[in-house]
Amino acid sequence: MPRVIFIEHDGVRREVDAPVGLSILEIAHQNDIELEGACEGSLACATCHVIVDDEWWSKLGPASEEEEDMLDLAFGLEKTSRLGCQIIMSEELDGIVIHLPKQS
């Protein structure tokens, strides 16, 4: 099974199973990783903002216009920021490194 590596707010690294077809937000919730997702993945907020490790950024498809609009509301936005609800796990993303942004 593919894996996701989360780097939590405090720098702790957690490697978890990542079923294909689930979003990074869903995978985080299944593993008690602190990623809010207030709108439950409906692309209506930016509370599942994550920062994709540079080496994985090019492996993701481009963000939609709706995702870009929501990202504009995110705290601590970086060039590799995405919404966790919009990154869908695939075999090609096995080992992806996701950083949780520092909390405000």
Rank of each mutant, 00 (worst) to 15 (best):
G41W: 12
H9M: 09
S42I: 14
S104Y: 15
K102F: 13
E68Q: 11
S42D: 11
L25Q: 08
C85V: 12
T80K: 01
C85D: 01
Q103H: 04
G84Y: 00
G76Q: 02
E8H: 04
D32W: 02
M1R: 15
E66V: 15
R13H: 03
H99M: 07
E78L: 15
V20R: 06
L35C: 02
V50G: 05
A44C: 12
V50Q: 04
A38I: 14
D10A: 10
K102L: 15
I33G: 02
R82Q: 02
E66D: 12
G76F: 08
L25T: 03
V52K: 00
V97L: 14
L83M: 03
K79G: 15
L73V: 09
L83D: 11
L25M: 13
T80A: 00
Q30E: 07
H9W: 07
E92C: 11
I51N: 12
D17F: 04
A28Q: 08
L77N: 11
E78W: 05
L83W: 05
W57V: 03
I87V: 13
L77W: 10
T80Q: 05
N31G: 09
I33V: 04
M70F: 11
I5G: 05
L73P: 14
E65W: 14
C39D: 09
E92L: 01
R14M: 07
L73W: 10
I98N: 00
H49Q: 13
L100P: 04
E91I: 11
I51P: 10
I88Y: 09
L35D: 03
L71T: 06
E78R: 11
I33Q: 01
I96K: 00
L77V: 09
A38H: 14
S81D: 15
P2A: 11
G41S: 08
V4N: 01
S23D: 01
E8K: 12
I96F: 00
C48P: 00
D72F: 04
E36G: 02
E15G: 09
G11D: 06
Q30W: 08
L73H: 10
A46Q: 02
Q86F: 07
E55A: 07
M1D: 10
V12A: 09
E8Y: 14
T47I: 03
E78A: 06
A44Q: 10
L35K: 04
H29L: 02
S58T: 15
Q30T: 06
M89H: 02
G76D: 01
F75H: 04
H29I: 13
C48H: 02
F75V: 15
D17S: 04
H9P: 04
I88E: 03
C39T: 10
D69R: 12
E91P: 15
C45W: 05
E68P: 07
P62N: 08
S64G: 14
C85R: 09
A74W: 12
I98Y: 00
R13I: 11
Q103A: 08
